[in-house]
Design a protein around this nucleic acid. Structure first.
Lengths: 131, 131
DNA sequence: CTAATTCCTATTGACATAGTAGGAAATAGG
DNA sequence: CCTATTTCCTACTATGTCAATAGGAATTAG
């Protein structure tokens, strides 16, 4: 299940794309438009800055802006950053985890196939597709 | 993310299907084969009994058995019972929830489309496909 | 200098997850 | 009837995540 981090994060990205006029967009404006607490959005946006999705600028006239064009972002990369993983099962979320039942597990192939579908869907969808 | 309830539940169903000889299969055997604590499986299987997926019988010679043929179960119905919902976002998980931003939400159509894909995948997959 | 804004740390309440523990009730077979 | 086996039931617990809130420090444009 996608949490508010992923859902709100995506909405922030869309908001930034829609209100991009070259300058920085203050978080307060985004919070007002999206009807999400600005305080909570700070946590969300901080992650996005750390993950390199957006750029922040302090001080008056500051705010946030996208670092590339909306068509260059995939929904997948945004969700993966915000959620940590997009995998549907713990077995596949941690790539380094080597399950002892890997070979005999009857469900693993299904989870892998499903994960592939999910991956293809979200990485095939661009931020610009949501505007 | 599918929790152990859904993952283990599915494995119990597969185990029951594979070891179905007309009689009841004791949980101890399933726990041994699946390498999952029997105590924990009790919680899992209890849900499956309540949900009508399997039938339980107490006492010596007791255990659990499927109530229909493996090809009559979909993975979707099993996961939905165990997880509560299979929806990827809270907005869609609770059918009665009427989001005030429903009309202007730019992400909702995507979540709906994605949920459709997930639904089709899991409800199109039969328990018998996993044997 | 000031107002606006991000940046940073800490805290909280509620809930879910992944179990464990102990025993009561039921039942088949001798 | 007795016993071994098995489900059924209630309770408990530790850990973590979620969804925030709170207060203030640092930064910067005008």
């Amino acid at each position: 299940m996608i949490s508010t981090k992923g859902r709100y994060g995506l909405r922030v990205m869309i908001d930034l794309a829609k209100n991009d006029n070259g300058t920085y967009v203050p978080l307060k404006d985004i919070a007002d438009r999206q009807e999400i607490s600005k305080k909570y959005l700070e946590i969300i946006v901080k992650k996005m800055v750390e993950g390199g999705l957006v750029k922040g600028s302090s001080g008056k006239g500051g705010g946030y802006k996208l670092v590339k064009k909306p068509e260059k972002y995939t929904v997948g990369e945004i969700l993966t950053l915000m959620e940590g993983t997009i995998s549907s099962v713990a077995c596949l979320a941690d790539k380094s985890y080597d399950c002892p039942r890997r070979k005999k597990c009857e469900t693993l192939p299904m989870w892998k196939e499903f994960d592939g579908i999910v991956h293809d869907y979200f990485y095939g969808k661009k931020l610009s597709d949501l505007l």
